[in-house]
């Protein structure tokens, strides 16, 4: 585990130097402030549209950051040939791979914490009583979603030829799963065989990102998610990220590093 966290620490230090977070953070805060200053019929205390837009921006920023960070980790190491001295140390390939995963996830978690903190402050400023357990769940479930995305992206980075193709393909897949995934079963029941069985199989195999997205509950001040469901969703996220990591490790273990 020591080796894994040593690799993770390197990724974390590298992420401080990158400008992605700062640019996206400033952009999100700026858009939030502009939206917050809009006037609708001179009515004070309108807050939900602001919460909705802010959370959407946070989700987009986090998705972009996690894809951009994790997609280039291994290809960059290979390209600059820094992977060889690293693997020459007593670090196995799967430890290297896991280290990259945890490094990406920790750095995104910290960035996301800052985003959610600003979001909380923005909400409190608008006099909406904040449901702190729900906000905590929203943050942790979001981290669960990002763990799956980072696992998927790291696995993609050892399968696809270039980071750009990996990011493009995964963006399409993630958006597809987000918008169509929850409805595949409803679509399947209207289809004839064998399309129905294929769609149902896809429905049960794909990760369901709707379990991690409780933005509507936050926006409309609903009560927190039952804790058992919250726990199950986290286990679900762990299972899927572990699955993608295993696939990534298996591919990476047999991969030729020298071209």
């Amino acid at each position: 585990m020591k080796q894994v966290f040593a690799i993770a620490q390197i990724v974390l230090k590298e992420s401080y130097r990158r400008k992605d977070f700062y640019v996206l953070f400033i952009l999100t805060v700026l858009l939030g402030v502009i939206l917050g200053s809009l006037n609708f019929f001179n009515e004070q205390g309108i807050v939900r549209y602001l919460k909705e837009f802010s959370l959407l921006l946070i989700w987009l920023a986090a998705l972009v950051m996690s894809l951009a960070t994790s997609a280039r980790q291994i290809p960059t190491e290979k390209e600059s040939r820094t992977i060889f001295p690293l693997l020459a140390k007593p670090i196995s390939r799967h430890q290297f791979f896991l280290g990259k995963f945890f490094g990406c996830w920790f750095s995104i978690s910290m960035a996301l914490f800052v985003f959610y903190l600003v979001f909380l402050l923005l909400t409190l400023r608008k006099d909406e009583p904040a449901n702190l357990p729900l906000y905590f769940q929203a943050y942790v479930l979001h981290l669960g979603f990002l763990a799956v995305v980072i696992g998927l992206c790291l696995a993609g980075s050892v399968i696809f030829a270039a980071p750009s193709s990996n990011i493009t393909i995964l963006l399409v897949v993630i958006l597809g799963i987000t918008f169509l995934g929850p409805h595949l079963a409803k679509i399947a029941v209207k289809m004839a065989e064998p399309t129905q069985s294929i769609l149902l199989a896809i429905y049960f195999v794909i990760p369901h990102f709707e379990f991690f997205d409780i933005r509507d509950l936050v926006v409309h001040s609903h009560p927190a998610v039952p804790w058992w469901a919250f726990g199950c969703a986290l286990i679900y996220a762990m299972a899927y990220s572990a699955f993608f990591l295993v696939i990534g490790c298996l591919v990476f273990r047999h991969q030729t590093l020298q071209k």
Partner: peptide, 29 residues
């Protein structure tokens, strides 16, 4: 199916605005 049933824990149930504290102002934007 069980996934759809489980997913309902993460979505708002069917409700209306309660009319307390001028909640309707949220419709205005």
């Amino acid at each position: 199916n069980f996934l759809a049933r489980f997913g309902k824990n993460f979505q708002p149930g069917h409700a209306h605005m309660n009319g307390r504290g001028g909640e309707e102002r949220e419709l205005l934007p």
